[in-house]
């Protein structure tokens, strides 16, 4: 087993208008390479916060976060951006595609940030779109795609850069039942065939049926860590 993401005693407290709201309280969690893990729990339990901290989008108030053998909570903003750029892929609930770019350009966006040559990034982005059955829509802009298609492009964007791990924040929350199920199967296939590590924050039971591990959060604490039905 090879740990890829770790949270050690992570606490996150948000302060708004002088009022402190604890989002996470002393969370310990280790994600192994190749896992298909869901962080589940009711709204406000701290799922998204934990995902953000693991992905270097935010810093814990206390505790440590690790990516492989590197401690990430102490990195400066530029170094943390570098980690996100080269080693972590993100998929967001609202897809968050760039509206003025086509599906192909969106899928290639992270590769462009990495400074890869145009030919390479277009080839990799197209390969990612093909893997997600989206090649036919490569030259459409987000407003010409359905929600499910946009989320596939978002996954292609995360996948194209070949990150060690993809963190997906409620990826099926905005999708209808059929589209959500198709997307889950797609991610499961990528996990099994390409060994991509997925960590989801979700409370979608359809997704929970397929994961290999479920970490349940309540009130900012891990209350259960169990093998999922997909294991």
């Amino acid at each position: 087993m090879e740990p890829i993401l770790q949270a050690k005693g992570v606490t996150k407290i948000y302060t708004t208008g002088g009022i402190q709201t604890p989002a996470l309280q002393g969370v310990d969690l280790t994600i192994q390479k190749g896992e298909f893990t869901a962080i589940a729990g009711p709204s406000g339990s701290g799922k998204s916060t934990l995902l953000h901290l693991l992905g270097g989008l935010d810093r814990p108030t206390a505790g440590e976060t690790w990516l492989g053998d590197r401690r990430t909570d102490q990195l400066d903003a530029v170094a943390l951006a570098h980690v996100r750029l080269w080693e972590i892929g993100f998929v967001f609930q609202a897809y968050n595609l760039i509206p003025v770019l086509t599906a192909l350009e969106n899928a290639a966006f992270v590769l462009e940030l990495q400074g890869r040559p145009r030919r390479e990034r277009e080839a990799k982005a197209m390969a990612a779109l093909e893997a997600l059955d989206m090649a036919a829509y490569a030259h459409r802009r987000p407003n010409q795609l359905s929600g499910g298609q946009q989320q596939r492009v978002a996954i292609a964007r995360a996948l194209a850069a070949e990150p060690q791990v993809i963190l997906a924040d409620e990826p099926t929350a905005n999708l209808d039942s059929q589209t959500g199920r198709a997307l889950i199967e797609l991610m499961k296939r990528l996990n099994q065939e390409q060994g991509v590590t997925f960590v989801f924050s979700t409370h979608d039971p359809r997704l929970l049926e397929h994961v290999t591990r479920i970490v349940r959060l309540e009130d900012g604490r891990v209350v259960r860590d169990e093998r999922g039905p997909g294991a």
């Binding site: 530029v78 951006a81 996100r84 750029l85 993100f90 760039i98 992270v110 990495q114």
Partner: peptide, 14 residues
């Protein structure tokens, strides 16, 4: 959108 771009790995100079 800028938040997403930063999340995806663009540093502040970019």
């Amino acid at each position: 959108e800028f938040g997403v771009i930063i999340a995806l790995g663009a540093d502040r100079w970019r």
